[in-house]
Design a protein around this nucleic acid. Structure first.
Lengths: 212, 212, 212, 212
DNA sequence: GTATAATCGAGACGGTACGTCATGTCTTACC
DNA sequence: GGTAAGACATGACGTACCGTCTCGATTATAC
């Protein structure tokens, strides 16, 4: 995952792959124990049993390293294929809520998002490493629902894409906001209420679109 | 807004109220120019023409100072009373989006939220200074809609409160997520789509509740 | 001892004399407990139960305050009039050594001397408050010895003065150097050795002078 | 001269020897310009073109740094070997007086001595870096005088050592006291008077010792 | 084999900011 | 006008990290 100029020479000692893994694990541990603001590159290096140089050779700064560390955690998310759209949505919501309950995610996700508001490359990295990975879930969920006949196959691709984006921002935003800003727990009841709202709203959206 | 032990003695030179204002303004300016991560207490003090000790006498750390600075910006938000619930929602969404478009809010809001995940008192300060101030908008909007007859007056207070909280997290979460995570602009069309989804979902929610 | 413009107006509330004493005592205590470098005006004020303003109204700075505090301790010194010059010298040496053994003198005397190398008024204050007070002892001792016939009454006043100054610097310098620089204790044996050296040298000095 | 754990590892970037020299020179310059009490570590670092951390890596505090800086100046002192004991004493006295006339020594020497009264390790450092270096001059002068036959070779080593210590404290003490406390200049005439006193006293001391 | 070259650990380096402390001045209200 | 209380601007403190650098020591491919 760490960057390397592609056309680089093959000569010289190759980078230790063990170091990569050790660094990511050390970062995760340090995030859990110290949180984002107390996180220090020197500490991560020490934990990983690695020199600071080795860190900086792979990641340009703390931000990128943490994005990669957190991104790995998002790999766990998947659409459960529960048989109904409502079940799938609830499942994803609860999975995402569980992910945000882990201390390393809690403390790091909003921090790198905050950093990214002033750092264009970081924003791209977050988009490709984290956001797109999540957005795929929405598309998968829609495809499953269309296969089941729960949702119509839309012809207007642009409108469909806009709706998918909206759904994504609503679901992800609501879960993040509930967890981190309102600082309230997410349970099955809340997930069901959100799902009801969402599917009701989706129906209204589709209906309005077809009317126009 | 800066804290002071309530039962404190009246003796001694009183704190300069001019300093308070100068510090908050300096913080806002510094946020715009430097952003959160480059923000330094020394720089704020210099800009405000104030000593660092004067800052620390009022705010325990950068986090609290920034929360208070950002909170002041949230005072501008209000329910437009446009005549329809849909208009009110769209209005609030656009106002909130405009607020998040300002550089000082963009860079600071998520940062302090991230910090708050490891800092209980900061979380409380955010809740009382920012979150509660926003949540009031939802309650006002509902009251207006009920006066107009667009929404029924609910008897089950607990359920009504849960719904209000849900609406709040969905609206605020979606706007924040769209703006900062997805990093896409919010325009009137997006606000209308969100409103459609929301009101459709709300109808479904009320319907289901009355059915049960 | 604290200064006050002489022709000052008599109007208004008179200065508290109790405060003067309390401040000097507090300074002495603080010197004993914290030493010179950790001494702070705020701490002295607190110990004395007095506002900092009150300190600064009386003494321009820490240096002057400490000079006055230390000077008071030098009032104890006197020529014992033991019956012999040797006895008087030994007595004064032991008295001075005892004074330098007290922690407040140890830590403060050399400190203010060091400060005085860059501060002309402070140097004058030290001279008039401390040095001249000590030098008088040499003159008293000589007068006693001359009364007893142990020393001749010199006619050349300038030479006599130069010798007195030399004796003063040698005695005071040796005691201070032994105590603070060499950091060795001064006991009766050392005092006797110094006295032997001094009186032998004094005899040689007088002899040489009469020869020329 | 700056300390370093002896058995330290050989790994890592070695300390810059250029920095050592630059720091000592900067300290000397700063002492001349600002004096002891206005001396600041930050200023020294800036003058030396070095980071503050580099200073603190080598010296635990201002005191130790100044001791080392001043100690270097004491390397210049030496017994002139003028052919007579009196000439040697006068020579050393004048050399020492000249040294104390330099602003960096004036302001710093008494200051670190004052600090050392409350700081055991600093006292040791002063002893080994400065005091012992000076005391050697006394021993060298005695050896030369014994070679010339001006002084007897003493059998009682303990007594000889006590006398050497006494001579040292008297000479160094008198010069320091005259220069810094009495604040009077030292010229050849004063040096001659001190030498007369000293050699006369030394004769009396030796005579008394042999009598007992 | 023997260069050649990139990597590794260690840790020193010039910086920047931190949060605290002391200085000497000021502004209050009270006496 | 003196006084206690305490806020104020200033500036130094010693520490913690930052990201870069310089070492000597590995560990690969390339000649």
């Amino acid at each position: 995952m760490p960057s390397r100029t592609p056309g680089a020479a093959r000569t010289g000692r190759p980078r230790s792959t063990a170091a990569d893994a050790a660094i990511l694990e050390a970062t995760r541990d340090a995030l859990v124990e110290q949180g984002w603001s107390k996180l220090s590159m020197g500490d991560i290096a020490t934990r990983a049993g690695v020199a600071k140089t080795t860190l900086y050779r792979r990641w340009p700064s703390k931000n990128e390293l943490v994005v990669d560390t957190v991104a790995a955690l998002f790999d766990e998310l998947e659409v459960p294929d529960s048989g109904t759209l409502a079940g799938d949505v609830e499942g994803v919501v609860l999975q995402f809520a569980a992910l945000l309950d882990r201390p390393e995610t809690r403390t790091a996700l909003m921090a790198v998002v905050a950093e990214s508001t002033r750092d264009e490359p970081l924003r791209d990295r977050i988009r490709s490493s984290i956001v797109d990975r999540q957005k795929r879930l929405v598309l998968q969920g829609r495809a499953l629902a269309q296969q089941r006949g729960e949702l119509p196959v839309e012809e207007d691709e642009q409108a469909a894409s806009a709706t998918a984006d909206l759904i994504f921002d609503v679901v992800a935003g609501a879960v993040v906001h509930r967890t981190l800003v309102s600082a309230e727990p997410i349970d099955a009841a809340w997930a069901r209420r959100l799902t009801t709202l969402l599917l009701g709203g989706l129906a209204a959206t589709i209906q309005e679109r077809s009317a126009s």
